[in-house]
Amino acid sequence: MASVEELKNIASQVRRDIVRMVNAVNSGHPGGSLGCTDFMVALYFNQMNHNKNFTMDGLGEDLFFLSNGHICPVWYSVLAHAGYFEPSELATFRKLNSRVQGHPATAEHLPGIRSAAGSLGQGLSVAIGAALAKKLNKEDKSIVYTLHGDGEFQEGQIWEALMFAPHHKVDNLIATIDYNNKQIDGDVDQVLSHRDLKAKLHEFGWDVIEVLDGNNMEAITAALADAKSRTGKGVPVFIMMHTVMGKGVDFMENEHKWHGTAPNAEQTAAALAQLPETLGDYKAG
């Protein structure tokens, strides 16, 4: 298990990777990726029992599904640093004949990915299925994790899945929402408000943990440990994780225009100057 200091060091490198990947192809989604970096690092380096020698079935290990697939730069970087594939492969992000697709995919067999995501709202259902499979494979007591965007919670399928999991007592499931209140066209509250999401989740039957600073490594690791302790009790667990879109790059923070905009060379240099290179940059392609 990594210390908080180690996790912070990894997070800094992951943020550098995100900025460099998106800049290199002048496309991709830096905002949500930066905002969820601390969560993803804590999940893979501190929380999950997972195996970098990837198998699709993942028997006996914890599984993770990214439902808001567009923030895959953070996932790719975390997977690479966790040993699923060489960090140098990050240089192929969004390029022809790459396994590192613009949105996560299984077709090219990138280790660590178990379902395509990009069209929003589907990941919770897939994760529920994987959690049910673990229950059917009776000896498998591991946990299934998901991450969602808050804009994504406007999709109807999410609410089908939110209704299903408590009803069927899917208690080996921890779903997390990146609650940054930002989506492409503006603030979530203005585009289409969830109103009181926490109350809704309670009413649907989820055990809800709220993390007020989802970019604080101590808070995130504590919340994940708390969530894990609540599994196996007949109800699914939900983490409402408040984050700052673009966290770590001052001019991107809280600006929804950085949802899907790549920084130019000058902006990239300004961003990297704020993010210490802790593990070594991958070699540019």
Binding site: G129, L132, A133
Partner: peptide, 21 residues
């Protein structure tokens, strides 16, 4: 698995069930 009148969720759950054999 009775999923109720929620076909989108059913397809997703089916996809997930394959992960684990």
């Amino acid at each position: 698995v009775q999923v109720g009148i929620a076909e989108a969720n059913m397809i997703g759950i089916a996809a997930g069930l394959t992960i684990g054999g």
